[in-house]
Design a protein around this nucleic acid. Sequence first.
DNA 1: CTGAAAGCGCTAACAT
DNA 2: ATGTTAGCGCTTTCAG
Lengths: 339, 339
Amino acid sequence: MAERRVRPTIHDVARRAGVSATTVSHTFSGKGVVAAGTREHVREVARAMGYRPDAVARGLRNNRLGVIALVLRPLETLDSFLPEGVDYFLRFAGQAALAAMELGYGLMLVSDPTQDSSPAAALACDGFLITEPVQNDPLVAMLTEERMPFLTVGRDPENAGYDSWIDTGTTPMTLQVLDHLRGSGARRIALVTGTDRNSWNIDAEAAYRSWTAQREQDPLVVHQPETAGLAGGSAAYRELFSATSFPDAVYCLTGRHAAGLLTALTEGGLRVPHDVQLIAGSDSEHTRSATPPITAIDLGPELLARVAVTRLANHLDAVDRPIPTGDLQGRLIVRGSTR
Amino acid sequence: MAERRVRPTIHDVARRAGVSATTVSHTFSGKGVVAAGTREHVREVARAMGYRPDAVARGLRNNRLGVIALVLRPLETLDSFLPEGVDYFLRFAGQAALAAMELGYGLMLVSDPTQDSSPAAALACDGFLITEPVQNDPLVAMLTEERMPFLTVGRDPENAGYDSWIDTGTTPMTLQVLDHLRGSGARRIALVTGTDRNSWNIDAEAAYRSWTAQREQDPLVVHQPETAGLAGGSAAYRELFSATSFPDAVYCLTGRHAAGLLTALTEGGLRVPHDVQLIAGSDSEHTRSATPPITAIDLGPELLARVAVTRLANHLDAVDRPIPTGDLQGRLIVRGSTR
DNA sequence: CTGAAAGCGCTAACAT
DNA sequence: ATGTTAGCGCTTTCAG
């Protein structure tokens, strides 16, 4: 391809304005010293010619493109952007895009650049945002090695060697859920987690185990792949409710698992919340529209996204804009599936 | 900032491999002719040094960055990426991102680059995707003028001078909705549209007017801003149902208007669908979770996105990959708000 | 205050 | 088959 260039360059403007390219450059970058009159004149000529600075040429020179890359880790396994069940990531991406624009950055959605199928442009970005990195995430390793600035939302569970991550408050949130269930009468609470090795799954399970240990309750944990969706919920039902002693409450980290489990429970003749209480770790359309609607955590991805983008952009620009404040920890939305 | 460069360049590799920069360039671009042995050797050295081609430098040289920009027009007025009500755009963006990656592009979410608040990087993109351009869209004009490839989803309703747009089938879809309502007994059907001057609103209204004219029915059209959300639905209710003669069915293009209208109807003592039938033009969480659930059109944004990205990328790469097939026209999901 | 010249990392002629 | 050279558009010393 290589379409012929039609946009005027800094030289075209310089020639028409009767000044040097340097002066034009200074006018637009605000760096050097340009007499007010000259600057106005250059601006005028540039506008008339439809000149706009070329971000790529600038990027080459300044080593800075003005783009933040976003890697939505779990989407690469889920392989679907359907709002059902991945609600969280879409809300995150959308808000991140808005926040980035407000700070003068574009937000690029990319797949993992350690796979070489990923677009080459990914590595041209100024910094990376990674939601829910997995254990010993190869991307974290690569970015560290290449000294590319990055920030993860949730931490890499095994990598102690970096501190650029945002705590999503999984541990206290898990304890709050368990206390809530106990407070409404549950005595034998089971946990259903996904199989991705991210801090979301790992920290929740750890918190659950320590909570049950303190109460001398036997932990009852089931793992189902995130990708199994509703079917993962049925599978969890079969694992949990075929034993002699049933749980009287289940905490499902994934909304789709919770919805699938709810269906299986109902079909199996168990009433929710009367016989079994149910909470989902991530609010989504599935939890909201289930019958009964499922109590769930709204993780507040919008705020997380704004915080993440602002922190990363502050780092990139070496400035100190205020970080949006608020509770990063998520909020329990109590619905009909708990008492 | 301008962090010091740590990545090796093509020259570093060339020196270490004992060849010229051209040879290194050729081995990586696959363009020139390089002896198999040399190529292997260069690859080896490059890997050892951790060399990766710099996408920005390539971009400058080739006038091609490997990035597609996505402008979600209505979001700029809605100013929120919340899934409630803008469901469509999130599904579109997510699927577009995946499709772009599969074709070797990154997808960048940008705001309108004709506003100069927009990130400079926006104009560095290889092509633009614009959902629902508005009448005489300034962005369409600018891209045309700059000879930047672009594709709009829905057409610019006033601009006959371009053909790079995807027909979302608004007209036949509108007729289908009206026929559906008539088929279930409606005799006086009202239309509620948004106020954005895009083909979605304009074509639907035109189709509605011609349909009513053919049946010698008086057209009954109400306009409410998209941004009014649920309140726009209440406002539409007051406009439509304070006259002496009420409609017995309403087609609301916007899901949130439909949900607001439904609430107002119920509070006004009218039963849906018994007294008034209701259809929404765009499926969303609001229509799905209303009581009763609202019959709505699923516009199938995933397919639209894949088609749009593939067409644009084909154009950019001057190749002819197959375009995903399927019905771009949307599908009526019949629920409790119609008989 | 303004301009000439060098070069960011890569590629495309054009030699050799 | 490989190397030399001249830029892509912009910024940045450094002289004037």
